[in-house]
Amino acid sequence: MGDIAFLLIIFFLLLSDSSKDKKLPLTLPSSTQVKKNETPVAARVAIDSAGVIYLDGHRVDTAKDIEWGVRALLTRTVADEQRHVQFKCDAALPKETFEPVLKAIAEAGGIIEAIGEKLQ
């Protein structure tokens, strides 16, 4: 009984770790057309409200770092379903901050999963 309980604890510990970039200070954009995302993602890219770029929770300096990082993560992929890259960005950021990152993901071969909130 105790063993099962501890296995369950380990499961929940690992599960709660998967949403670690949730705490970033950013306001997500909203749209009526967003859908629940069922596909697993190969990488997570985020830009917070200060314009700081993150790849899988780690801070990077430029969009070029994103391109290299995503390219490295996608080298072993064989199907389109494995090329999805989650993209989170603050709704108020200007084009010159987020567009180079979007282009970098596309250049690296990623399919962008732009995260947003459902507009009621």
Binding site: A5, S19, E38, Q86, I111, A114, G116
Partner: peptide, 22 residues
């Protein structure tokens, strides 16, 4: 501890749009 994690963990299904920029 299990009860704590059950309460604290949110099984999020994020909402998104898929954009394949060629």
């Amino acid at each position: 501890l299990i009860i704590y994690f059950l309460v604290a963990t949110t099984l999020i299904k994020v909402k998104s749009i898929t954009a394949d920029l060629p």
